[in-house]
Write a protein that binds this DNA or RNA. Structure first.
Length: 422
DNA sequence: TCTGGGGTCCTAGGACCC
DNA sequence: TCTGGGGTCCTAGGACCC
């Protein structure tokens, strides 16, 4: 059977999104920061060339960037989410079957192409996405997901390849795998990389050729799958429709430290509402709720962290109920006198909506509540995430994220549309 | 000056049952 | 002086991903 997988991966995705709407940044270093403008999470090639590493705090490299004519952006997830959708829609025209793997990656199932035709098809995909969305992508092709990942890395690194590389049936596959560090293989993290090197396995090729029994024993069944995929036998299927999430977390660090119970409650209510919305988006209800609260372990001063969970009387996705339970749990673990950095909500025990086992002492789910949530979600989808919310989530939000370098929401807010002057 | 947020899968071991 | 053995379910923790 002729399994062929293409991994399409957006180059420097967040930085590329910013550049689409600020073409004067073409050819200049651009970085995008994590929440609260902490550290670098995306870099253009020019920023990489300056030696700016991923994850580095911005205060360490901000001056260098600006002196080199670069730009710094706070992360703007409404923009990236919307651009991602456009890219994925474009890709879906190229295959009957694909898996959206992350905000900036998709696996495309391809078949019925000859070897050379595949590479050209990859280039065509790349050109079309660039034309239709402005986002540059790289295409890696192989008989398995793991090999497509490797092909993609090579396509990205070697500009002579025109952004598309195919390892399926490649005559020099041994040399290719020999050139890939074992730590760069998909599924091999830092821990396994260290273990492998200690045992004399330094390259993707050596992992491919390692004995099954040893791999299975030291890296579990997942490691064995990786090794098998390196040999060209698919073990990790393409999942077109992602299964519903088994847990939903919503948490965020505060823009600045927070001490008062009221402020923490406000933030937590906001996160609980976000989590509830995620739950409804996948038509689920939660039967367990957890809340955590922590000070900043990187800062000197008294430290405190705690986590508490409770079973809900009836599985629900009704925002007011979840917010109420979250607030009650927070009151249990909150201690005055600390500077808090972070709080969050975790929803677990997730079941399909309408499947709830009714509690003998609770009334049946209220259809009016469900209708209310549907209406609120519709309004917020259309007019922006926070148009309708509970008073408990706060208005002024002193705890909110620090985002000093935010670009406009070019694609999701009418009043922030880009303007073209002729 | 400051260090993100949100997931998945697998395994070992304890609790519990017969 | 003796106190089995085997199965299932759940949870915590470790590894990974972007």
């Amino acid at each position: 059977m002729d399994d062929t997988v293409a991994l399409v991966d957006c180059n420097s995705f967040y930085a590329s999104c910013e550049r689409v709407f600020a073409p004067d940044l073409e050819g200049r270093p651009v970085v995008v920061l994590s929440n609260n403008d902490g550290c670098v999470v995306s870099r253009s090639d020019e920023a990489k060339a300056l030696g700016i590493e991923i994850g580095v705090p911005i205060f360490k490299c901000g001056r260098l960037l600006l002196n080199s004519g670069g730009r710094i952006f706070s992360s703007n997830y409404s923009l990236y989410g919307d651009m991602s959708q456009r890219v994925m829609e474009t890709l879906s025209a190229f295959t009957p079957s694909m898996e959206v793997y992350s905000i900036d990656e998709a696996f495309l199932f391809l078949s019925g192409f000859s070897r050379t035709a595949l590479t050209d098809y990859g280039r065509k995909i790349r050109k079309t996405v660039r034309q239709w969305t402005g986002i540059p992508v790289s295409v890696g092709i192989g008989p398995t997901k793991t090999l497509a990942k490797i092909a993609n890395r090579i396509a990205k690194k070697d500009p002579r390849l025109g952004g598309s590389f195919n390892v399926r049936g490649h005559p020099r596959i041994d040399a290719i795998l020999e050139s890939v560090d074992v730590g760069d293989v998909w599924g091999v993290g830092p821990r396994y990389a260290r273990l492998l090197r200690k045992n004399g396995i330094f390259t993707a090729r050596a992992l491919r050729d390692a004995p099954d029994r040893w791999v299975r024993k030291n890296m579990t069944i997942t490691g064995l799958r990786t090794a098998t995929e390196l040999r060209g036998t698919p073990c990790i299927p393409i999942e077109e429709a992602p299964p519903p999430k088994k847990g939903v977390v919503s948490s965020r660090s505060f823009g600045s430290p927070v001490e008062s119970l009221d402020a923490v409650l406000e933030a937590l209510s906001n996160y609980a509402a976000t989590a509830a919305r995620k739950l409804r988006a996948q038509c689920s209800a939660a039967s367990v709720i957890g809340v955590f609260l922590a000070t900043d372990r990187f800062r000197p001063g008294p430290q405190y962290a705690n986590f508490i969970t409770a079973k809900l009387p009836v599985p629900t996705s009704f925002t007011p109920d979840l917010v109420r339970h979250a607030r009650a749990l927070l009151r249990v673990i909150y201690r005055p006198g600390y500077s808090y950095r972070k709080t969050g909500v975790l929803l677990d025990g997730i079941i399909p909506e309408g499947n709830a086992q009714l509690n003998l002492f609770e009334s049946a789910p209220d259809e009016r509540q469900a209708e209310l949530m549907r209406t609120v979600d519709r309004i917020n989808d259309r007019l922006g995430g926070d148009t309708v919310h509970l008073g408990a989530e706060g208005i002024r939000r002193a705890w909110g994220m620090k985002r000093l370098k935010l670009s406009p929401c070019y694609t999701t807010r009418w009043n922030e549309l880009p303007v073209v002057r002729c």
